[in-house]
Design a protein around this nucleic acid. Sequence first.
DNA 1: CCATTGACCTGAGCGC
DNA 2: TGCGCTCAGGTCAATG
Length: 265
Amino acid sequence: MPELPEVQTVVNSLNELIIGKEITSIEELHPRTLINQKNINIIGSKIISVNRRGKYLIFVSDGDWKILAHLRMTGKFIIVKNYDKTEKHIRALIRFSDDSYLLFKDVRTFGFMEILKANDKPNSLEKLGPEPLLKSFNKKYLTEKLRNRKGSIKTILLNQHIIAGLGNIYVAEILYKAKISPLRAGNSLKKNEIDLIVKYTKSILKKAIEKNGTTIIDFSGVDQKSGEFQNFLHVYQKKRCKCGNPIIKIKQAGRSSFYCERCQK
DNA sequence: CCATTGACCTGAGCGC
DNA sequence: TGCGCTCAGGTCAATG
């Protein structure tokens, strides 16, 4: 389940592996994967960088186009020298002039790659909240956003329009470190609690990026290697808290939440 | 504007 | 062995 650190890990690998490669063909192997509504031709140009915004990837080219991509739950980018056509779940592919391939593999087919004009500003990006690791995500901003929200802090932190990049795993870990129950209403949080959320959001995401993300079920990097951050999780899919109490699993907005009733108030 | 719910998908895991 | 059920969860549209 790629969240910000996992997407950043993928972006870092792609920047090492496909920069400067010239595209010779692109193919969709499963419907709704490759979106190109403007019929933009990308053949003959090169990828010059890969960037991240929230959980989105943006492939920037030396032509008048870019690719917006999202891995959703099970999407993976894989670079191979030889494309094995018998491999399952390959949804789209790009071939480069050196005969290597960028494969987009996605079991559950929710991910996509969308070809856009270089100066397009898609709504999905425009509506995103601030990047959690930048200074624009701070105590003042979050305080303002929580002021009139009576929904649960868990659901609020998952809302990409409020903060971009968090998913189920990291929200659980952030609330655990901040000692805040996922059930608390957004507008009930005190100043120091908001401060802790901001602080732990940044520190946990930074550490997870250093560890190349979390591999629980569906994530592996471009090189198929696992991340290491799962070894540092405290509550997500855990049975017991360090304090000895069991970790409670509940449903919030259709998503599972994990927390310790003793440590998180 | 805000909150909630269902839809989109496939494979793994479980009970019987 | 196999069937049917539940679960996994990121995002958006629809609804109140």
